[in-house]
Design a protein around this nucleic acid. Sequence first.
DNA 1: CTAGAGGTTGACGCTACGTCAAGGTCAAGG
DNA 2: CCTTGACCTTGACGTAGCGTCAACCTCTAG
Lengths: 256, 256
Amino acid sequence: MEWSVQQIARTAGTTSRTLRHYDDIGLLKPSRTGGNGYRFYDQSTLVRLQRILLLRDLGLGLPAIAEILDHEPDVEQALGRHLDWLRQEQDRLARQIVSVRQTMEALKDGGQIMAEHMFDGFDHTRYKDEVEERWGKDAFAKSDAWWRGMAPAEKETWKQRSRQLGSDWIAAAESGVSAGSAEAQELARRQVEWLTGIPGTPASASAAGGSGDVKDYVTGLGEMYVADPRFAANYGGEAGVMFVRDALQIYAAKHL
Amino acid sequence: MEWSVQQIARTAGTTSRTLRHYDDIGLLKPSRTGGNGYRFYDQSTLVRLQRILLLRDLGLGLPAIAEILDHEPDVEQALGRHLDWLRQEQDRLARQIVSVRQTMEALKDGGQIMAEHMFDGFDHTRYKDEVEERWGKDAFAKSDAWWRGMAPAEKETWKQRSRQLGSDWIAAAESGVSAGSAEAQELARRQVEWLTGIPGTPASASAAGGSGDVKDYVTGLGEMYVADPRFAANYGGEAGVMFVRDALQIYAAKHL
DNA sequence: CTAGAGGTTGACGCTACGTCAAGGTCAAGG
DNA sequence: CCTTGACCTTGACGTAGCGTCAACCTCTAG
């Protein structure tokens, strides 16, 4: 008993194109090929096809399926790995769903937010809670008022400096220089200088006088960067933030 | 102020290749192109890039992103649609996870299961609960014993008939003939004949005598096919099962 | 003999870039 | 002036799994 492509395709619930594809990649060869090139399939190939389709429905890729069918003992191990992969995908989707909903809420709160902050990589309000908790409500209020009072052009310049600092840090970290190098220390100096411009922080308060607070503040900042995953994204991954932290620590010990 | 590809790429946290791609597809054109072909970007293009990357991180496709950025009012609607899509994907993954785990458990229970039933498209035990609930435990026990007592070759023949019937139904449904046509009615006859071979069903009990039960049974069978999504898969989708149901109903009314 | 159904082999299309390959451009140093 | 090295350019292939023509045989039934 043997069948043509269409017959097999209908029986198994797939298409002839799929069968030709499986033939091409060597996943499922016809049991016989006629002199006219026609493909014919028998029972054993049909069974193999149905195994393939079952595994495919479970979400496995064709190479993985070939692996399983050719080395049967690995089947449970392979399924286990696939299960892990499926769970990872679900987690990823869960995170994306949260992000999308947060974005939508932010857009509802004020359409302006989008144009001004949400989409330009410098969301000043996003850190409200942390700033308040760390440095007091007063600090955030001052800082916020300062920001809102700024002209758009000034804002742009400010944001630009922030971004430039970030990318310079990344470039330095990737270049492989040490955290104590002159290059890194210069960046640390710029970072502190930049911080001095933000009102409500110990750095700005002591811009003139200079107190021991600043040292702790700068050192603590580095630790905070490392602990908070959002900063990792801005400083080129985990290695990047650790580089920033070390550079700031060394700078604080030497100069503050 | 303008920057080169690499500078923009580092600032925004992406690669120059991505920028060239966005240029190619028209998603993000450089603000200026030098006589030497070099791409240069300014502040506004940088902002646009950052919007693009934000939306990309939310999982949107590039065409969707272009849509949003070019017709801003649609942004929340677009995000809503995207959210729906993300949820659907999560559901799909959830179903796959369940399937994979079931398969793994089935493989643990008896490695034989795989070779004999699980993978050959005729999982006789899969319907145990439904069969018991519908026709009583006795019916399932009989049916199961009958199946287990069969020689492999006989089993193959039986499964073959089942598959052949399935694909013939699909072919008939797709050919566009009506449920009352001679072709469909012949299939219905074969289906009833096939059912007669399974012990423990009203169809087999009355194979000789013929009682009113059979009519109800066959009619009910059609309804069950329609209600159960697993059958839809075997009969070429929703339209397919409806065709089968109608054909069986007409046949039962005429001949039983 | 001629449809018509069904078969074949290419080959492009789709997502979003990664990854060579081959070759200009530009600033700095010998 | 020439070289080196960093940075830029335009192709073009590869990826996963087929869908979808296109152009062209083959077989069967009327």
